[in-house]
Each structure stands twice: as structure tokens, then as C-alpha cells.
Amino acid sequence: MSDSNTTDFTNPSTFILLGIPGLEAAHIWISIPFCTMYAIAILGNFTILFIVKSEQSLHVPMYYFLCMLAVTDLVLCMSTLPKMLSIFWFKSREIDFSACLTQMYFVHCVSVIESGIFVAMGFDRYVAICDPLRHSIILTNSVVTKISLAMVVRGSILSLPCPLLARQWPYCRTNVIPQSYCGHMAVVKLACADTRINSYYGLFVLFCVLGLDAIFIAMTYVQILRVIFSLPTNDARFKAFGTCGSHLFVILAFYIPGLIFSLMYRFAQNVPLHFQVLFPNVYLFIPPMLNPIIYGVRTKQIRDRLLRLFTHKEA
């Protein structure tokens, strides 16, 4: 295998993933937190799925959407982290061209789907707090299924142009990607063609899709907070805010770093390369690890089910 930065191909059969450029000597140490995040994310999200499936009282819209979030987090981890760890541990840097584009698709598809899930969860919290008597009428199982399907279809279709556009460009300069996974712009930057359409489309998805989702969620929470602060007692306010506090924290952890990373990768030319690579890696995998922890700790029903599970085993 050669890590040469110059080749004479126009359609490479493989790309070379460098991992964290400039920190190759520390790859083994860097792999430790990533391996830990991977293990926690896999265990935590499968635990969420198991608890919701086995607990009949959790078969309500909020937990259906939480299961969707867990599944997307698992897809993201399984499609990227094993290859990343193989780079850190075994210097297995080669990735097939088609596999690279497939990985790219899943990374961006999951991001758009997760954004849609957060919108759906925000709407669920809005109905539960602002119109609780009609919650079961508005969010029936049929409606939840249609919303979920719409989120998946939207993410799948909007992410499809990224690998399709990337596949058509000639790659005549290099096949070396200074990343540990196949990100959209990281691959497109290697093409020897005018790829502005890729950048424009990426910005369209960022601002017109994820941005609109964030605006809708913000408007939803403005209404939720208005209702919460109009409640007559502090106990009622605290209880109402507790039902959506974890959701709000997860949303902020998803949108704010994602916006910073997307803009930094396109416009920040003076940021050190190893930071440009390390930051998106951390951003990509912290939410799948944190989501089950946050919902598990802050959601009483899940916490109680876990305690009963361990108590029963000890007995």
C-alpha cells in the first residue's frame, strides 16, 4: 500500500484515510476515548431499544421517536467507527471507492434524519405540554408512523445527491483523504473539477433544511416556555420543564457544534489540520454516546425500568 499524494488515475478504486494528520504517533492513545465512546454508544442505544420494547407503558410517541434516535445513532457508529479504529490500531487506511461513498451517504443521511427526529420530538413535547388533553388524539400510532417515515424518506432523498455528485468527478490529483472517515467535502476537495455545486448543495442542506428544522424547534420551545412560565406553581413549572429539559440539551449538542464544524471546514483556512479533523470526529460520535445517557438519567420511566432490571437480576 502506498500513501503517495500524487497518482495518475481518473477513477480511483480506493481512497487512503490518514486518520488524524499530524498526530499519527498518538493514534493508539487517541483510539482509547473513541473506543470508549463506541462501546458506550452501542450498549446505551441497544439498552434504550430493549427497555422501550419490553416496557408496555413506554409504547407512546415520545419513546417511539427516542427509539428512532437510538437506531440512527447505531447506524452512524457502525458505519464509521469500526473503520476509524482499524486505522488507529492496524494502520488499515485503504477504503474502497464505493465503500467511501456509501459511508459518506450514511453520515449525511443520519444527520438529516436526526434533525427531523428532533423536530418530531419537539412537536410531541409541544402537544404534551400545551394541549395535553388532546395528545393521544393528535399523535396516534398512525400519525407517528407517517411522521417517522417522512423523516426517513426526507433524509434518504436529500443525502443522495452527495455521493452521486462525488462519483461523477475525476480524481486525478490524489486519493489521500486527510480524515478518518469519508466526509462529503473532504472527498470532493480531492476532485480536479469545478465542484462548487457540491459546496452549494451542502450549504443548502445546512441552512435550508437543518436551519429550518432548528427554527421550527426554537419556535416550538418558545411556545412551550410561555406555557411553562404561566403555570401557577413552581412545582408545576419544574415538572413541566423536566419533561423537555433533556430533549433541549440534546438538541443544542447536535446543532451548535454541527454548525461550527460545517462553517469551519468551508471557510476557516488558518485552523490547524489536526484540529479540523479531530473536532468533527468528536462532534460526530459524542451525541450517540450522550443521547442514551441523558435520556436514561433524566427520564424517570427509563431509569425506573433499569433499576427494576438490575434489582431483579440481583434477586
Rank of each mutant, 00 (worst) to 15 (best):
F15V: 00
I20K: 05
P21Q: 06
W29V: 11
A39K: 03
N45M: 03
T47P: 01
K53F: 07
K53N: 10
K53E: 09
L66P: 05
L69G: 10
L74A: 03
C77Q: 15
C77H: 13
F88R: 00
W89D: 03
F97V: 08
A99G: 05
T102F: 12
M104Y: 00
S111T: 11
V112T: 11
D124G: 04
C130E: 06
D131A: 10
P132E: 09
L133S: 15
H135P: 11
I138W: 08
I138D: 09
L149T: 08
A150E: 06
V153A: 04
I157C: 05
S159M: 09
A166E: 04
I177L: 00
C182S: 03
C182P: 01
G183Y: 04
G183S: 08
M185Y: 11
A186V: 08
K189M: 11
Y200S: 14
Y201E: 14
L203C: 13
F204L: 09
V209Y: 04
I217H: 00
V222N: 11
Q223K: 14
I224R: 00
V227K: 10
I228V: 04
L231Y: 06
A236I: 02
G242S: 14
G245T: 12
H247F: 14
F249S: 11
L252V: 15
A253F: 13
I256F: 12
I260K: 10
P272C: 11
F275Q: 13
F275E: 14
Q276M: 14
Q276E: 13
P280H: 07
P280R: 02
Y283F: 14
L284P: 06
Y295T: 13
T299E: 15
K300D: 12
Q301A: 15
Q301Y: 09
A315D: 15
